[in-house]
Amino acid sequence: MIALRTLCPLLVVAGLALIPAFTSANTTLNFLVFALIVALSAQGWNILAGYGGQFSFGHAAFFGLGAYGTALAQARFGINPWVAFAAGIGLAALAGTVIGYLSFRAGLRGSYFTLVTLAFAEVFRILFNAASFTGGAAGVLVKLDVRPENFQFASRSVFYWVVLGIVALVLLLTMRLERSRFGAWLIAIRENEAAAKALGVDVLMVKLQAIALSAAITGAAGGLYVQYFLYLDANIGFGPWISVETLMAAIIGGAGTALGPVLGALALHGLGQLTKGIAGGTPGIDLVLFGALLILAVAFMRDGIIGRLRRLLVWGRR
């Protein structure tokens, strides 16, 4: 079983990495890039919520800060995009720490934490929409200048590999985390915070580290978004859509599993394409179908795709 656990993610990443060798269709690559950006965002969410049990509904705050950090550092200060990307990640991690410090110290748990994250994301959205430094409502444009040192690539495949590389890196990190002491503490807090505390776990510290890491990863997703689409405004960066996509991907795939968010994002976006394909002309019908399939998926996969797969495996061995 342990071997399978390591093997599966490897196979998934390898399979994904080979796709550009079989298809040069940019439609497919574009679809995959966006799905993987959502996957990365969901991987970030998964650290805090999946493993740590701190259910955020405001990861848009981190996505947006990562994106704005990346974009503004280039557009306002002329910093190299790769460095700007790192700055964006740093900014998101910092915001995660501050938000975490404020809310965890106040003892916010469960739905209360969920709601406070939602509110923080909204505050950022309103502020970034109004401030002139951020470009206000007009948003920020990253200058189109296709050079690798600019984090812009002529070929969609290269960008795809970069995104996939980061996703794989986070996947590895998450798998290590599962087996680390930090990971054990985090899971202990999820299962029973009081008991973890009684056992001597520094609950606040562990939660803070988790939210910083989580925010950094989701921030990276934001940075990638802006490098790919080269345009950003407050509703894209901080809008509820990304919070929703993020947690849907993670939960559908299987929260608290390393591979879950990646599978979830791919499944979710695949589903979106599928329903778009079958629904035809009338606007809205495809999304109705999508919503229905989402409910069915939840009804038949209690612990997400990974949970379903595991049960199938266990059942197969009996």
Partner: peptide, 11 residues
């Protein structure tokens, strides 16, 4: 959470 989200998308 997912189901109510799904419902809202459908409605």
């Amino acid at each position: 959470l997912l189901i109510t989200l799904g419902l809202s998308i459908m409605i």
